[in-house]
Structure formats: C-alpha cells, structure tokens
C-alpha cells in the first residue's frame, strides 16, 4: 500500500510542479508587456467600466514585484484569473461562458477520433488484401497532413453548399455540431491510429504470438485476446498527448465555424493583446493536459502487470 501510495503522490507532485512552472513561465512572459499600460487600458471609457469596477481591478493588479506574483498565483488557485483587458470583465466569467460549448465539441471530437483510429488501425491490421492494407496505412499520414481550417472549409463547401445536407445557419444542435466535430476529430485521430497500427504490428511479431497460434488459435482470437491488449498502453499514452491538440484545434475549429467557446475566446484575446485571458487559457490547457496524462500514468500498472511490482 505504502509503495503505490508513494508512487501516486510522487506522480501527483510532479504534475503539480509542471503546472506551477507553466503558470510561472506564462506569468513572467506576459509581464514583459508593460504593466502600467494594462491599467491605463482599463480606464478607457469605451469599456464602460464603473469607478467601482476600476477600483477593483486596480486592487487586483495594483501590487508590484513578488507580491503581485504571489497575489496572481493565489488568485489562480482560487479560480480567480484576473480581468480581461478587452472587456474589463473577470476572466473566470468569460472562461465559464465558453467552457461548456468547447467541452462538448472536444469531447465528441475525441470520441470520434478514437473511433476512427481504432477502425483504421484494426482494418489495416486485419485485412489480407495488400492494396487495401497499403491504402489504410496511408490514411493516418494523410489525416495528419490536412490543415484543420481547410478541412472545415471543404466540409462546409461539400455538405452545406453542394449537398445541402447541413444548413449553414440554424439547424438543430446536432447538425451544428456535426461538421466541427469531424473537423476537429480527423487530425487528432491520425496519431492515435498511427501508434495503434504500429503497436499492433509490433506486438504481432513478438515471439509469444506463434506460441498462441501453435495452440490452434484463429487469427481473430490472437488479435483480440492477445495482440490488442498489448498494444493498448502505448496507444493510451498518445491518446493522452492529443488532449493538448484538442484545445489548440478548438481555436481553429470554432473560428472557422463561428462557434462560441474557449477557442474563439483565445483567438479574440490574441487579437486584442488580452494577456490575462491568454494566460488563463494556457494554464487551463496545461492543467487539462497534465491531469489527463497523470491519469494515463496511473492506469499503466493496471494494464501492464510488469509495472505493478515496480510500483508496489
């Protein structure tokens, strides 16, 4: 018990350290922009902030030096990310507005990406026709080479303008979600399919496979009961790594399809040089990434008994 608890604690500690470092690096970088200029921006009458709000912002950004850093760090830990330069509203509020839509998009896209990847990898592994196999093996390289924004545009062109299957404006929520999810899923499915196909091929050359075949097992039995199970851990790792791309991809996808969400917010923040918003988005992305990969790491000993002894 103490062994695995220690492993869990040390991995969690490492994750926290990475997050802290990401925050600090982002903070320091964005501090390179003159701080006073930020305060002046908030006094711009176009933002329409009341004197009380300005006072509040001033008290948030008012301190200087290490005090300011600690202040911001504590704020982030409490879920208080400062104020948007663009609108003067709290960053947390703007994030909260965009988060549900982005989570829906990203979650659906991830599920679809895994589905595509598994289908492509297993089909290319299972087929005996060498031509079909070659074509399927080329699919991940093609998918990873397609610019997401262009794919979105092409999808709109084909499905909305040519085939008129999906309305450009309006339509049900499902219809609205369909093309963006596809756009986001395709590039993300590529690395997963690639590693899964490669792992399947690699596991199939291992000496234990002929031993199973010598028991009289069919190719399907070998693939599903032995090979797939051993190919899972590396695939899980790569799937975890794609979570970062999921957030980055939503910037492009939401922009192309004109959807509101964290991605759109990010794009607007860069245009407006809204550093507090960008810092919050970066920290959010890093948090999601680090947490997902922490879970993957902790799952490893469950999937591979060889790691259990090292852990326990």
């Amino acid at each position: 018990m103490s062994g695995s608890a220690r492993y869990l604690l040390s991995r969690a500690g490492q994750a926290a350290l990475v997050l802290w470092a990401a925050f600090t690096a982002g903070y320091v970088l964005l501090q390179l922009l003159p701080g006073d200029a930020i305060l002046i921006k908030f006094q711009n009458p176009e933002l329409g902030l009341s004197p009380e709000q300005i006072a509040e912002i001033r008290s948030y950004y008012g301190t200087d030096g290490p005090g300011a850093y600690l202040h911001t760090l504590l704020g982030f830990l409490r879920g208080d990310f400062g104020y948007s330069i663009d609108t003067g509203t709290p960053v947390a509020e703007r994030l909260a507005e965009g988060l549900p839509a982005t989570a829906k998009l990203a979650g659906a896209a991830f599920a679809l990406a895994v589905l595509i990847a598994v289908a492509v990898a297993f089909a290319s592994c299972h087929t005996r026709l060498s031509r079909l196999r070659g074509a399927l093996q080329a699919v991940p390289s093609l998918f990873v080479s397609v610019p997401a924004f262009w794919l979105g545009i092409v999808l709109i062109q084909v499905f909305s303008f040519r085939l008129r299957l999906v309305p450009v404006i309006g339509g049900s929520e499902l219809q609205q979600l369909l093309l963006p999810v596809l756009t986001l899923a395709v590039p993300i499915s590529a690395p997963i399919a690639q590693i899964l196909a490669r792992s399947l091929d690699q596991v199939r050359t291992q000496p234990f496979v002929p031993v199973v075949a010598a028991k009289g097992a069919s190719p399907g039995w070998i693939l599903w009961r032995h090979v797939a199970r051993n190919a899972l851990p590396p695939t899980l790792t790569v799937a975890g790594l794609t979570f970062g791309e999921l957030i980055a991809g939503s910037v492009v996808t939401e922009t192309v399809f004109g959807r509101n969400g964290v991605g759109r917010l990010t794009e607007q923040a860069v245009n407006a040089q809204d550093t507090p918003v960008l810092l919050a988005v970066v920290v959010l992305a890093a948090t999601v990434f680090v947490l997902v990969n922490l879970v993957v790491d902790l799952l490893y000993p469950v999937l591979d008994p060889r790691l259990r002894r090292a852990v326990a």
């Binding site: 000496p207 234990f208 002929p210 028991k215 009289g216 032995h226 051993n230 999937l303 008994p305 060889r306």
Partner: peptide, 22 residues
C-alpha cells in the same frame, strides 16, 4: 488450426518472450 495444439505441440526458443506478458 484443428491440428495445432491437438496433434502437434510447440516448445519455442525464447522463454523470456514467448508468453503473453499481460
């Protein structure tokens, strides 16, 4: 498949890697 295992058994070369590790 019906012959393998039932009529012919195999003892492989490399015991370290000839069993499924999981």
């Amino acid at each position: 498949q019906a012959v393998r295992g039932a009529q012919i058994g195999l003892v492989p070369q490399d015991p370290a890697n000839s069993l499924n590790p999981v």
